[in-house]
Nucleic acid binder design. Structure first.
Length: 466
DNA sequence: AGCACA
């Protein structure tokens, strides 16, 4: 289908299209009002409303081009302008030939809604209010709320997509009733799409998340106080619950950090199941999923504050995510699912049967070393001078990492030559000398044996986190 | 009041 001829129109009249662009619509103009306005001129086969930053534009697609022409012509010569609720509406041909609905992402109906609540702080709308509003359409199974750049958001889980669709159709673009909100809240518009989730993983009852199907779920004391995704301060100690999924914020990103680079870095501590990269507040963050909490804990302790590339570049800040099982595309530039067979080179033996979420919350140190061993057996077999297969003993992280993290040389990696992409970057297990190593795969292992600081500064200075 | 979606 030819949809967009992206060329600008050097004409006095636009090219006719059976799609009309309507602007200056009243706020929250409904599809019904659009139909009411346009129906006299022909059959409407599609609409798209609440378009634009102000949500006051819309597109209407007629079945036939002549119907669109008749509407434009009519109002071009009419003494009465087109109006919706008394507001003059400006109509012209769209520069596209058909309405493209975004059926690929947030419009594929599912049983979980992603709700963005605009214009409010997280504290303004309680989870009970959200529950009340969305319960009008059916039993709400679970709610998870969180804050991100888009604003205050909530995931609402219903039992089925039909119920979710009903709620979405009724509430998208509308507002939570004023009397349910604090006085100072002036506007509170809901923007609703479908989430790709089907079953939320609620770990605790808290002011941020609820599982209404499981009243015996424990109340999480630490979740009641806290902010969700902590940006770790210098002394950063948050009482966040442990998780098998790490949230990595990457600071000072002078070099591109790819999924592959992250996989190499984090695979040092065990099998990496999934990775997702995303933007947050202009910075880059990533979620790294391990099979269990113990492995994640080792990785977190080991890597926190350290840099992927030497010179203070791509400094990692790690915290525990609230996720336990990431929902990611199997293979693209932003995410990877290594548990899917035939993806990449890793064959993950435990993938099919392992209940990751459940296992994730039963820290099992032995499983950590078991998976780590598997991972190394598969992924780090390249022979090399320093090939010591680390057998992870969780007890050793106390001595090796916590006591002297800044002297741990293995955690600073060589920056890639400017002409090379970091995918081929050396991830050095030894400091300066081996930065130019010609066999990147041989550097897979970041050896847990901390060297004395003196030997670490042979050639280039290592970056020591403050 | 001036063109979405990925």
């Amino acid at each position: 289908m030819s949809s967009s001829s992206g060329q600008p129109q050097f004409r006095y009249t636009q090219t006719p299209s059976k799609v009309l662009h309507l602007r200056n619509l009243p706020w929250e103009c409904t599809e019904e009002e659009l139909v009411e306005l346009c129906n006299p001129f022909g059959k409407i086969i599609n609409t798209k409303s609440n378009v634009g930053a102000n949500r006051n534009q819309a597109f209407v697609e007629f079945a036939d081009l002549n119907q669109a022409i008749s509407m434009v012509s009519y109002y071009a010569s009419s003494s009465e302008p087109a109006q919706v609720r008394g507001k003059t509406v400006y109509i012209q041909y769209s520069n596209r030939q058909e309405i493209t609905n975004n059926k690929s992402s947030g419009d594929v109906a599912g049983n979980v809604l992603l709700v963005t609540i605009e214009g409010v702080e997280a504290g303004d709308v309680s989870i009970d209010v959200i529950h009340l509003v969305f319960s009008a359409f059916g039993f709400v199974h679970k709610i998870a709320t969180f804050e991100k750049a888009a604003g205050f958001q909530a995931l609402i889980q219903y039992s089925d997509a039909e119920t979710a669709s009903n709620a979405r159709n009724a509430l998208d673009g509308r507002s939570i009733p004023r009397y349910l909100l604090p006085e100072h809240v002036t506007s509170c518009h809901l923007r609703i799409s479908f989430s790709a989730h089907t079953d939320l993983n609620i770990k605790f009852q808290s002011h941020r998340s609820r599982d209404y199907t499981n009243p015996y779920l424990p109340v999480n004391p630490s979740a009641i106080e806290g902010t969700l995704q902590p940006t770790l301060g210098p002394d950063g100690r948050k009482k966040e619950p442990e998780s098998n999924v790490l949230l990595a914020s990457i600071e000072n990103m002078q070099y591109a950090v790819t999924v592959d680079v992250l996989h190499k870095v984090f695979s040092t501590f065990g099998t990496v199941q999934k990775i997702a990269i995303f933007e947050k507040n202009g910075g880059m963050q990533a979620l790294i999923q391990y099979p269990d909490v113990a492995t994640a804990a080792v990785a977190k302790e080991s890597l926190e504050g350290h840099c992927i590339y030497e010179g203070g570049y791509c400094k990692l800040h790690l915290s525990y995510s609230r996720h336990t099982d990431l929902n990611v595309k199997a293979h693209n530039d932003r995410s990877r699912d290594y548990t899917i067979p035939d993806t990449g080179m890793l064959t993950i033996p435990q993938a099919p049967g392992l209940p990751t979420a459940a296992a994730g919350w039963q820290a099992n140190p032995q499983s950590a070393s078991m998976y780590a061993g598997n991972d190394y057996a598969v992924g780090a077999q390249a022979p090399g001078p320093n090939r010591q297969m680390p057998t992870w003993d969780p007890s050793m992280r106390g001595g090796a990492y916590v006591a002297a993290p800044s002297t741990y040389p293995g955690q600073t990696f060589a920056p890639p030559p400017v002409s090379h992409y970091p995918a081929s970057a050396a991830i050095s297990s030894a400091p300066a000398e081996s930065l130019q190593a010609s066999q990147p795969m041989a550097q897979y292992g970041m050896l847990p044996n901390a060297r004395p600081p003196t030997s670490a500064s042979a050639g280039q200075p290592l970056y020591y986190p403050s």
